[in-house]
Nucleic acid binder design. Structure first.
Length: 217
DNA sequence: GATAGCGGAGGATCCTATTT
DNA sequence: AAATAGGATCCTCCGCTATC
């Protein structure tokens, strides 16, 4: 499925309560299973999830917890880094990274999660295509953030007391821990040792969502 | 050739300490 | 006291290997 097709399918669901769209059974455990809402949206769109790294053939879907005005209440997960740590430490070209592939063409769907799950609302989405000229500034800022974060990671590995990486932030994106027990340590071939006892991931900071919200559909 | 089960990627949010 | 930063944690899905 292409991203544009998903926009059309999503259109009638905007401003709908979750209770109107799915059964109570589908909402079971939705609080504890943090990613459930995202998976529900995927299934409502009819995504087959057999698409390699991306949700769409040409882009990615992200949902995030918001208040009723669409203000983001959390940072937004992008992708884990454990298997690609050395690419980052070598400052691989931004446009060749999985990070860029994941965020290049993004359908951002804020979900207002005030009240009971059946009353949660799918808010109007934002389509962020970083290749378009209107997003040039944001793209360049993220590129800048990326190289800066790569530098911070190296600095942490070489100078922190535990020799591990720690939260590394730019203006719009950051890397911080992301794992569950049992942890997956991050091993660097470059340094020939573990550079973290648990996995980490790229996240969008809230400022990214605030920025793109200014042109919500 | 099936099926179980394990590990890592993917769906995210929660919690506590620190800063403002 | 409220907001942000930094770290921790939760569930699901899927592919690969081990085992049937």
């Amino acid at each position: 499925m292409r991203l544009e097709e998903a926009k059309i399918k999503l259109q009638p669901m905007l401003n709908c309560r979750l209770g109107e769209l799915v059964t109570p059974e589908q909402m079971t455990d939705i609080i504890r299973a943090k990613g459930r809402t995202g998976q529900i949206i995927e299934s409502l769109l009819g995504l087959d999830s057999t698409n390699g790294n991306l949700d769409f053939v040409d882009g990615e879907l992200k949902t995030n917890k918001c208040d009723s005005s669409g203000n983001p209440l959390e940072t937004m997960f992008i992708t884990q880094i454990s298997s690609r740590i050395d690419e980052l430490l070598e400052k691989k070209d931004f446009y060749e990274t999985l990070l860029y592939e994941k965020i290049r063409n993004l359908l951002y769907v804020p979900i207002c999660k005030e009240g009971d799950p059946e009353d949660w609302i799918i808010l109007p989405f934002v389509h962020v295509d970083l290749r378009k000229s209107e997003y040039t500034n944001i793209r360049l800022q993220i590129e800048k953030d990326y190289y800066y974060i790569c530098e911070l990671l190296k600095k942490h590995i070489e100078t922190s007391t535990d020799g591990f990486i720690h939260t590394s932030s730019g203006e719009l994106i950051q890397i911080r821990s992301k794992d569950s027990k049992p942890y997956t340590p991050i091993y660097s071939k470059l340094y020939k040792r573990n550079v973290s006892n648990k996995n980490h991931a790229f996240y969008f900071k809230k400022d990214f969502m605030r920025y793109i919200n200014s042109d919500r559909y």
